[in-house]
Amino acid sequence: MKSGGAPRRLEGLAFVAPFLLLYGVVLIWPLLMGIGISFHRADLFGAREWIGLGNYATALADPVVHQAIGNTLLLALLIVPPLTALALLLALALNRATRGAAVFRGIFFSSSVLSVTIVTLIWRFILTPDAGLLAVAADALGREPLPFLSDQALVIPAIAITTIWWSLGFPIMLFLAGLQQVPADVYEAAALDRAGRWTTFRHITLPAIRRTLLLVVMLQTVGQLQLFGQAQLLTGGGPGGGSRTIVLAIFEVAFGRWELGYATALAEILFAMILVVTLLQYWLVTRREDAG
């Protein structure tokens, strides 16, 4: 038995080696290179000068970065909980083997296949205060159109609504996949015990799809912390930086000012933010499971 263990391990390594090699080349090596560049004053033409933690110190004192991080966290807070709740409610409503449910599943998923350019064009036609759909409706009601894309108090909620509309399809599919794994006889037993809908959802459905719920929250959190296209195409980060996200700030620093080292430092800060938030979410959920 011992003599056959080593060849089997080598066979297993041979199977996973192509993936590990690709993973290292595409993800691990660029990550290590990025960390190295973040300690330099570098530009896009290859010039580098070692400055240690200088880029990070600049980022910590930069009010533009503070505003971008605040906008990013606010957008994630406005998007992830409503998106998760709405996707779960729609998945519960569409978890039926009927033709109508299949049609609506396709309709809700259709927005997810659109590019961010198409999505922003659609919502520009809706939100533009002079000739947009909401402006026409406001005029018909005798009210002043709201400047959704030029008011600092409205631009973040406008981008959040746009993103929720665009991102709704994929979480619905994940929740539907999780709901369809719950055994039907469990619901039949609950019905025989005369359990209400809320009781059934709380004590049967929600525990059964807890892992799916965690997956959706983590994926959406990671995605929304990297929000870029909507802010760039809808508002360009304005007004007054009121919709500038951290990824948009990285883009402006790298390709607008050509400060590659500083932009890489900002990217590493974003990576640390994503890592801390996702690990915190995972720890909170697993702690509750262990306590339960």
Rank of each mutant, 00 (worst) to 15 (best):
A91W: 11
L94S: 09
N95G: 15
N95W: 09
R96I: 11
A97K: 15
R99I: 15
G100H: 11
F104E: 01
F104S: 07
I107P: 10
F108Q: 01
F108N: 04
S111N: 13
S112N: 14
S112Q: 12
V113P: 05
V113S: 10
V113N: 11
S115Y: 04
T120F: 05
T120E: 06
I122A: 14
I122N: 06
W123N: 08
F125G: 11
F125P: 02
I126D: 12
I126Y: 06
A131L: 13
L134W: 05
A137R: 11
A138W: 02
E144H: 13
P145F: 12
L146G: 00
P147N: 09
D151I: 02
A153R: 13
V155Y: 03
T162N: 00
T162H: 00
W165Q: 03
W165H: 03
L168T: 01
G169N: 03
P171V: 02
P171W: 03
I172R: 00
I172C: 02
L174D: 07
F175P: 04
G178W: 04
G178A: 09
A184C: 00
D185Q: 04
Y187Q: 10
Y187K: 01
A189N: 02
L192T: 12
D193I: 01
D193C: 08
R194T: 00
A195Y: 02
A195V: 12
A195G: 06
G196I: 07
R197Q: 01
T200I: 06
F201A: 09
T205P: 10
P207M: 11
P207N: 11
A208F: 13
R210K: 14
R211E: 14
R211Q: 13
R211A: 15
L214Q: 11
V216W: 08
V216R: 04
V216I: 15
V217S: 14
L219T: 14
